[in-house]
Design a protein around this nucleic acid. Structure first.
Lengths: 215, 215, 215, 215
DNA sequence: TATGAATGAGAATTCATTCAT
DNA sequence: CATGAATGAATTCTCATTCAT
């Protein structure tokens, strides 16, 4: 309508995906109307069909467009380990948390995956293998090294990685649940996570009392 | 046709809610058709309207019917603390995890809350205050006592409680995401959780050095 | 709305098919709107979907409902031959033509088949094998007998049957094309058909000469 | 891109009509999309609107473009009669059949007319008066002469003409219905048509027995 | 209580048509 | 001349809801 048709055209798919994300998360896949997505960017329903052949395909494209760049970012930026396990743990946590809060879309991707997990299981699986599995892989390798170096108590390192990631996922869910109705004190949460991981939950003294004192 | 019928009639609301849960979680609130819910228990759409005045009210009743008894169970069964912090941590974890695995419905409640959080925020809040808040309250009280008794490193105990619960929530989400497609090794996860909380992630030696590698 | 729900219900499919026939022939398959079909019998679009799962299925059911009883009628009423070939020819023609004029729907079936032949070839084939083929079969048998009895000039009797039926088909098409805009003098057409078949087109004299003009 | 282009441009309307015929017959008027017509000749929808002001006008132009040259051909090539009625009948039949099978488009014109007869009755009428009527006129004139010359049994010659044309129409319909799924033995059909017309269906002997022998 | 036929508002989708480039 | 992005009205199809039985 303005004149810069071709420029707009190039950006349309992104625009639509952006708008679709907003609507899908607000309303859920089933209840979102394509018309609302269209309105959001000032076009009409029909326009969406120029770029996506159906609501379902739009949803699929959305999932892909959300996870692909995230996965890529993780794959491109190799984890850089030192031999200081504490520093590396700090690095792991800050990277995980930063990643989530830098990427507002990550949270929504998660919501969509949880909501529609039974209807689109392939997406869950894709995301797992492209996105979560590599993270767990990297972390468990570092932990293996840590164990070998006597920095870490021997344990199942893959499970340990899973456990290290878990609170991040959890924080994510919280922020999905409460949106901005309940300000979540992320910093404190993160710092708690860090503290517990770094130093353990219990005082040496209490711990010694616990089971054995050979420590 | 008569005896069984009348018995069933009394149970109709429960039957409907049960069926509604199955459908809502499979399809999401927006995309679930009342007819499918009805079919599941061998009645017709009209019957649902004898017990619930609309789809939305049905959903609300479902949330309530799911969370109320769970919250009640938690409220009735007071936490029973000892002065052995390690034993109490074990107790906390086993109670939290057992709760999830005993109550299949709990997981689905969570999914519904995540999926529909923006559309039904009141439910999220209700659940938080009736269900999650009390848990956090109880745990943080115990941790306060632990700190006072010198068992636990001083810290923000409410956040600590949140952090202790986080992996539980996380495991829950995982099982929502992967259903039974990806067998999650819950036992190992829980045991890792326990180990890390009880003894800390790092060896005393590594921990003392923190930045050094006297190891 | 009136009260005799169940009676109406039983008749609905027929009602709808009847209305569908009227609309499809008036407007063609592609351009017919389900709403118009519905209006014709005083119901709404939605009602049609209680009985037919899509527009296409409705069309398919229509074709079947049109051809099935016609084919059945032909199959049930065996052709009854005498040994008078002239009488039998009369009988054949009157039966073929009567059939067309008794069965208003037959004409429309043909139109639908011609119109949609490329889109629904299976229907054309079904109709051929269930409906046309048996007719040709019966006629050619009679002609075989006629040849054996020296009543008919030896010839390919299957083709002869096809040729005997052809003008009937042709008249049918004419009436489809002109509807009631151009009154077709069917009686004269039929009588011409009869005359030509019975006595041949040419005088014996001309015929005998075949290429000569003894006239 | 330039030389070929400009040549193509001059031919665009024809190209479009050609493509339109293919699509209309395949899909019917209502269900044909202009975009498909455009694609067929490698242009876009918009281009069609440079040459035809609407879909309906395009259809109208198509009918005209199909029937006009056919009618013209018939009008230009006067029927050339001899006084040999048999030869003339041969000539009539071969001309009619040749005409149909030379002109693939004739069949499709017929299909379109049958399909859309109720929506575009004017076309049916135009075609009748410009095309069919003259044929019937010519034939009936020849038959009149034949009767006057004692070659043909007195009869309604206009109806006779109609009847002579009928099997041709019929064959046409068959080929519309079965396309190339069911090879129609046209030659045999035509030869049967010819035989029956030329010599009559019945043997002289059988014929005499039939009703009267004053013949 | 329960049914299920019918409704009708509303959503997805299609496509003739327009128009800026 | 030609494009093809955009439109928006029209159409198919869905489903929560009603109500006569």
């Amino acid at each position: 309508m303005s004149g810069i048709r071709s420029k707009q055209k190039a950006e349309r798919p992104e625009q639509i995906l952006e708008a679709a994300l907003d609507e899908f998360r607000k309303t859920g896949y089933g209840a979102t109307r394509l018309e609302d997505i269209a309105k959001r960017i000032g076009v009409t329903k029909g326009t969406i069909y120029l770029y996506f052949e159906s609501k379902e395909k739009l949803f699929e494209s959305l999932i892909t467009s959300l996870s692909a760049p995230l996965a890529q970012e993780f794959q491109e930026n190799e984890w850089e380990w030192t031999d200081d396990i504490a520093a590396d743990l700090d690095y792991i946590l800050s990277r995980l948390y930063n990643f989530i809060f830098e990427h507002h879309k990550f949270r929504e991707l998660l919501r969509l995956l949880v909501s529609e997990a039974d209807r689109f299981p392939q997406f869950v699986d894709e995301n797992y293998s492209e996105f979560i599995a590599p993270i767990l892989q990297s972390l468990s390798k570092r932990f293996d090294a840590g164990i070998a170096a006597g920095q870490i108590e021997p344990t199942d390192t893959h499970e340990l990685a899973r456990f290290v990631v878990a609170p991040v996922l959890s924080l994510n869910i919280m922020s999905l649940l409460f949106g901005n109705r309940r300000a979540i004190d992320c910093d404190t949460f993160i710092s708690t996570h860090r503290k517990v991981l770094l130093r353990g939950l219990l005082k040496p003294g209490a711990k010694e009392g616990e089971g054995g004192q050979s420590e």
